[in-house]
């Protein structure tokens, strides 16, 4: 079945082969699932790293803090592509062989960890001195203070930047095709290469990302409103 879409005034017209698009759906579905998995683990580990590292930085733990700061600089100032190549092509040279999936997740985590660390850190710094002192004055230990007083408030403050990082990392997965993973980018490239169905393949590619990112954005802004209200009532 052929459908014609007319571009109106400019008179461009384009044919979309719907049959081809429907037949390609399973390929896109598989790639979306892969993207989802990579993003899920990458984001989860990034959040954990951010949480732990930001607390270590907050308490200025000797030596460890300097190492973390160096990591943050390194991670933020190198492209993900370079980080991936290092893991995928570089590590085998020194005898470390990782699967493509492991490389992708580690790469995303290496990148995301620093962004999440910074997001949590700015949230922690926004928690007032008096909050900390009133926690201390009831005898809380440093760890309890972080857990019950600082982090819940820091988390609420950081939510917008954490959310932005989540979306950023999800989109960054588009680069893992560079290490031979069949992600959305690679599926689209292959289809274009094999069948010359450029418009269809690209349209599906855009739609696939929208289907993943849009609901996530909506959920995140909803969470943001909820958490902010629960914490601060505004």
């Amino acid at each position: 079945m052929m459908v014609y879409i007319f571009g109106g005034r400019v008179g461009v017209h384009m044919q979309l082969n719907w049959e081809f698009m429907i037949e390609s759906l399973p390929l896109y579905g598989a790639a979306m699932w892969l993207t989802f998995k990579l993003a899920f683990w990458g984001i989860l580990f990034s959040l954990l790293i951010g949480l732990v590292f930001s607390v270590i930085l907050y308490y200025k733990v000797k030596v460890v803090s300097s190492v973390i700061l160096a990591y943050v600089e390194l991670s933020r100032n190198t492209p993900l592509l370079v980080q991936l190549f290092f893991l995928y092509y570089g590590l085998p040279k020194v005898g470390v062989h990782l699967s493509e999936t492991a490389c992708a997740i580690i790469g995303l985590t290496f990148l995301g960890g620093s962004y999440m660390t910074e997001a949590f850190r700015s949230g922690i710094e926004a928690v007032g001195r008096t909050q900390i002192e009133s926690g201390l004055s009831i005898g809380l230990s440093k760890v309890q203070l972080a857990r019950y007083v600082i982090l819940p408030q820091a988390f609420a403050i950081s939510i917008p930047s954490l959310g932005a990082n989540v979306i950023f990392l999800l989109k960054e997965t588009s680069i893992v095709g560079a290490i031979a993973l069949m992600d959305l980018m690679n599926v689209a490239k292959d289809l274009i290469g094999m069948y010359y169905k450029t418009a269809e393949s690209l349209l599906l590619l855009v739609l696939a990302y929208l289907v993943m990112v849009l609901p996530l954005s909506l959920v995140l802004s909803w969470v943001e409103r909820k958490v902010r209200y629960a914490e601060f009532g505004d």
Binding site: G128, T130, S134, G135
Partner: peptide
Amino acid sequence: FQNYELFPH
């Protein structure tokens, strides 16, 4: 203290 806040959350 004067402005010893309660924990808002």
